[in-house]
């Protein structure tokens, strides 16, 4: 609703109503952001100040000690590398596999196309969290991996490996669906001349359609990266050694001990949260629009 002069149009009319609405909105924004402010405040406090009563709102002597301590934690670097490999690998795999499959479903004719696409849509509905046990067992029993025999027994399979981390997220029904919807809207004229020149399906995909699909690929990349970067449950179940953990499992371990130093933990939480917020702020246009049109990512 734009600004309206006519009475009886906008949701909030009189000055008092408008003031009340603005105050409510401001209050809601303050409540929403308060946990972040508390996190930041605590992350700059010293260990002593954390237990001052009543608690101070702002650090009396702000210092970067907690951040330096977090960066020097054993495994912090390793966990960052693991998170980057997990998120980067998942993103790359999704970009390749989902765009190839999406292209075939949108543009190529073959027997069983509708049935296979119906299967992809049906798999959209499979609740992933409730499938975690069999996925774990399957990844453990991949033949020839991690000392397994050809029947998938005897070894640890892909447990504690990057391949095991990435495999279950390497392609998603949602990603295939997203790419297909995009390719279907590209006018066929783009590929016709190339097809007349005798170009094969892959050449057309690679040279013509892929360069056109940058907006869709951007969305897919952001969503895949965010999903894997923020993922906790799969790394928790798949990895059992500290050097294979991600930043998320590392953060969880940091506060699961008996004497948690919350100022250090808050510095770690701030460092883990920052990248996604920076990515969001720099790509806000894509994010809001496409999240909106594609819905929740579970």
């Amino acid at each position: 609703m734009a600004t309206i002069k006519h009475t009886g149009g906008a949701l909030f009319q009189s000055g008092a109503e408008r003031f009340l609405a603005a105050a409510l909105l401001l209050f809601a924004a303050a409540v929403t952001i308060a946990p972040y402010l508390w996190m930041l405040s605590a992350s700059f406090k010293t260990g002593q100040e954390m237990y001052v009563f009543p608690p101070t709102w702002l650090p009396t002597a702000p210092n970067l000690g907690n951040y330096i301590e977090v960066l020097q934690l054993p495994y912090a670097g390793q966990q960052l590398v693991n998170s980057l490999i997990y998120a980067g690998g998942t993103t790359l795999a999704n970009l390749i596999l989902c765009s190839l499959a999406g292209y075939a479903f949108a543009r190529l004719e073959f027997r069983g196309r509708n049935a296979l696409f119906a299967l992809v849509l049906a798999l959209l509905m499979v609740p992933t969290q409730s499938q975690i046990i069999p996925v774990f067992l399957i990844v453990k029993h991949i033949p020839f991996a991690g000392g397994n025999d050809w029947l998938g027994n005897g070894g640890t399979g892909l447990l504690n490996t990057y391949a095991g981390l990435i495999l279950p997220n390497a392609a998603t029904p949602f990603g295939i669906f997203l790419m297909r919807q995009f390719f279907i809207r590209v006018p066929p004229e783009y590929e016709e001349s190339a097809r007349l020149d005798g170009a094969g399906s892959f050449a057309i995909f690679r040279k013509i359609l892929l360069p056109l699909s940058r907006p869709a690929l951007t969305v897919l990349a952001i969503l895949s990266f965010q999903q894997a970067w923020n993922d906790f449950v799969w790394p928790l179940i798949l990895t059992s050694t500290r050097d294979m953990g991600t930043l998320q499992t590392g953060l969880q371990l940091l506060h699961s001990g008996p004497d948690t130093r919350w100022n250090v933990v808050m510095a770690a939480a701030a460092l883990i949260t920052a990248p996604m917020i920076i990515v969001f702020l720099s790509a806000q246009r894509h994010f809001i629009q496409n999240f909106a049109s594609t819905g929740l990512k579970g």
């Binding site: 075939a104 296979l116 992933t128 499938q131 399957i138 399906s201």
Partner: peptide, 27 residues
């Protein structure tokens, strides 16, 4: 064309079957 279509779809479908369809049946 059909052959390449199957080749394009196979890797993604393999992942979906291995990590979504098979687990549902296995459970």
């Amino acid at each position: 064309t059909a052959t390449s279509a199957y080749l394009f779809i196979a890797p993604a479908l393999f992942i979906l079957v291995l990590t979504l369809l098979l687990p549902a049946v296995l459970t």
